[in-house]
Amino acid sequence: MIANYGYKDGSGEYYISIDTDKCLQCPVEQACTRACPKNMFEIITDDYDDQVAAIKQAHRRTLAYDCTACKPAGGYASLPCASACTAGAIKHSW
């Protein structure tokens, strides 16, 4: 399942997509939960009883601000969350 967390507002689209099928056999022991400097990721049991990564509720409406520090302007060449997930489950829309 592709889970899109985020929103669209007057300033743009801000979605983090997680391919939760790739979480089922996570090769890096849920590294996304440790890689995010804002601690935005969590492991949840989804509606189909699978253990998958998700964005915490508190961050879903503030991604544009919460992710700012990890974007190129913050000195990062690549996103810590997407780099940590070697399965390639995490993508940012912006």
Partner: peptide, 18 residues
Amino acid sequence: IHCDEKGKVTNFLMNDKC
């Protein structure tokens, strides 16, 4: 929401900010 033939979600997006 996208779903398969059994009604299982394969892709979703929600906007509850506005």
